[in-house]
Amino acid sequence: MIDKVFYFLSFLAILAGLMVVFTKNPVHSVLYLILAFFAIAGHYILLNAQFLAVVHIIVYAGAIMVLFLFVIMFLNLNAETEPQKPIFYKFIGVILSGVLLTLFVGAFRKLDPIYSDLPQTDIGLIKNLGIVLFNEFTLPFEIISILLLAAMVGSILIAKKDKAVVE
């Protein structure tokens, strides 16, 4: 049962991921990306990581993709307005994705197959996650929060109007 759900979700995620790249319409791309996120959230639930699944949906599908969609709707992108990029860019793109692919293939080759059947743990439940986060990983957690704070201050600074320019 779980196996079948896993294969279905994986198929959905890969299909949606491919459709993100292959669809012509950028709005459709965003919608397929949301579908991919849902498939991944489904995987989290299979791993009994409910908290991660819901936060994934809230943050990615509920907030970030809404903003993506928001911007793309305003841009009115279509074939005529697409800027002509030099062939050089495509060349770089192919090389970079090739490198990434090699990296992934190499990493998965070394992967221990023991993880293919994970024992049913409760580590993903919110209580256990909190305990782990605030006992073993307190320092990284706090450092990440400072990083986020810095990013927030930076974005506010960028968004804020420069008074000298306005006057």
């Binding site: 409910q50 819901v54 809230i58 599908a61 509920g62 907030a63 809404v66 969609l69 439940l125």
Partner: peptide, 16 residues
């Protein structure tokens, strides 16, 4: 056991 977060997840999708 994540009931409240589930609400927020669904509500945040409502805008789509």
């Amino acid at each position: 056991n994540i009931g409240l977060l589930y609400i927020f997840g669904v509500v945040s999708l409502g805008v789509y």
